[in-house]
């Protein structure tokens, strides 16, 4: 098993390694809709960047621009120093896109054989099958596969040409926990082989588990960027969950409490430091129960970052 890289190494990669792909001052409109606004975004050699954002944030649009499947209204896109539509660039990239229908009457190994043939130096088919965990189902028709297996085939098509740079647009969408972890492991293996990967996701946990660097995108603009721990550091540190008789408003007025909300029978309290608040709570309510203290995950970081100026959390 390959462990996630230590933070220092991640930072090094993010800043020191050469840029392999770049969006420079890119805006993309679909009619009235501004899908991307003035986005600057680099992918460095050997790093795994997660592009994190809610539905409609512009993640797929960014991926399409990198793949030359969409044209920016403003700004430039360059991949390996060239135009992404050029065949010499395309043989060095691989992509996993969201697709509504894949031809169902071809076998797994046939799909892979065909896509491998497009590349000058593809991986041996047996190796592609093994990386994507498809050996046992290689002779099945695509139409007979489960959702998770289908995702793995699309993943295999992205990597079969042994490209240097991979774009994975929501690779684990619709997968159960187990299947997601399997795919994560496979993505980590790619990075361990020295590939650069851009992955989009709404799963905050996923970005945290995989990425060297997280770029948070919201309504077409990049709102935060950094290592997972840097992103987390931008918001409150701890989350306290407890069941108490105290009024929500009373708790909110306690010093050090950043935010409180009711979650079913319990209260969820966000704060920088947990201990003084817990002490205070126990002093005021001896019947306090069910105390849980967790680090604020990316979930909280993300909610805080995507908060509109007027204080409401954006969809």
């Amino acid at each position: 098993m390959i462990a996630t890289l230590p933070e220092s190494s991640a930072r090094e990669r993010a800043t020191g390694a050469p840029v392999v792909a770049r969006l420079h001052g890119v805006s993309k409109n679909y009619g009235e809709i501004k899908a991307l606004r003035q986005v600057d975004f680099n992918i460095h050699a050997g790093e795994l960047v997660a592009l994190l954002g809610p539905n409609g944030a512009g993640k797929t649009t960014a991926v399409k621009l990198f793949l030359g499947l969409a044209k920016p209204n403003q700004g430039t896109v360059s991949v390996f120093g060239g135009n992404p539509v050029h065949p010499e660039v395309r043989v060095r990239t691989g992509a996993m896109l969201q697709v509504s229908r894949v031809p169902e009457t071809l076998r797994v190994r046939e799909h892979i054989d065909l896509f491998s043939s497009y590349y000058p130096e593809p991986l041996p088919i047996s190796e592609t099958l093994s990386i994507a965990g498809l050996e046992t189902i290689k002779d099945r028709l695509f139409g007979d596969l489960s959702g998770g297996q289908r995702q793995r085939v699309l993943f295999a098509l992205a990597l079969c040409g042994d490209p240097d740079l991979l774009f994975l647009d929501e690779p684990t969408v619709g997968l159960d926990v187990e299947a997601r972890r399997v795919l994560w492991e496979q993505i980590r293996k790619l990075v361990a082989r020295g590939k650069s990967v851009l992955l989009t996701t709404h799963y905050l946990e996923e970005a945290d588990a995989l990425a060297d660097r997280i770029v948070v995108i919201h309504q077409g603009a990049i709102i935060a960027e950094g290592t997972p721990s840097e992103i987390k550091a931008q918001t409150a540190g701890k989350k306290i969950r407890c069941v108490t008789r105290l009024e929500l408003d009373a708790v909110r007025r306690l010093p050090g409490v950043l935010e409180v909300h009711q979650d079913r029978e319990a209260l969820e309290i966000h704060t920088a430091v947990a201990e003084p608040i817990i002490r205070e709570l126990l002093a005021r309510d001896a019947s306090l129960s069910g105390i849980e203290v967790t680090s604020a995950g990316l979930e909280e970081a993300f909610l805080a970052l995507t908060r509109d100026d007027n204080g409401k959390t954006a969809a």
Binding site: L67, G68, L69, P87, R90, V91, T93, G94, A95, L97, Q98, V99, S100, R101, V102, P103, F115, Y118, Y119, L154, L157, G161, F167
Partner: peptide, 17 residues
């Protein structure tokens, strides 16, 4: 079907001529 349901786009993103 392949144009409308995204498959052609997957192929166009690859180096297929």
């Amino acid at each position: 079907a392949e144009r409308g349901l995204g498959w052609l786009q997957v192929k166009r993103a690859s180096p297929m001529p």
